[in-house]
């Protein structure tokens, strides 16, 4: 389509989506895009109401920071707990494993210099 569609035709395109030919033209034509921009421009009052309608609560930043900090701390604590659990499991496994040849009936005696008797 070499010529620009009329405003009526662009309006019809908005209403019905016809036709592929107009589609193609609009996709490539900044002039028609500007016309459509003007045809569909929202009133300032509507935009202002929209801005208010989706405005976040006043304390959004504080709530987000507190929530994110809490999540990060909780995850860090979960990681420590998981590590402790794994250490505990290793100990239990060592005690119960019959292939372990160390004598667990008598606890090792640790000397004051750190050596094991």
């Amino acid at each position: 389509m070499s010529r620009h569609p009329s405003r009526q035709r662009l309006q019809r395109w908005l209403d019905t989506g016809e036709t592929r030919r107009v589609d193609r033209h609009i996709n490539e034509c900044e002039h028609c895009q500007s016309t459509l921009d003007a045809l569909t421009e929202l009133d300032d009052e509507v935009v202002a109401d929209l801005q208010t309608a989706v405005a976040p609560p006043d304390d959004l930043h504080d709530r987000t920071n507190v929530g994110v900090d809490g999540r990060l701390r909780s995850e860090a604590a979960t990681g420590v707990f998981a590590d402790l659990f794994l250490v505990g499991w290793d100990v239990v496994h060592t005690i119960l494993d019959p292939t372990t040849d160390s004598d667990m009936t008598q606890p090792d005696q640790i000397e004051t210099d750190g050596s094991i008797r």
């Binding site: 589609d23 609009i26 996709n27 895009q33 459509l36 569909t40």
Partner: peptide, 16 residues
């Protein structure tokens, strides 16, 4: 980009 523009025009038309 062109899809954004055409969909936005239609979205605003629908809201109007």
């Amino acid at each position: 980009l062109s899809t954004v523009k055409t969909r936005l025009f239609r979205a605003r038309k629908a809201l109007k």
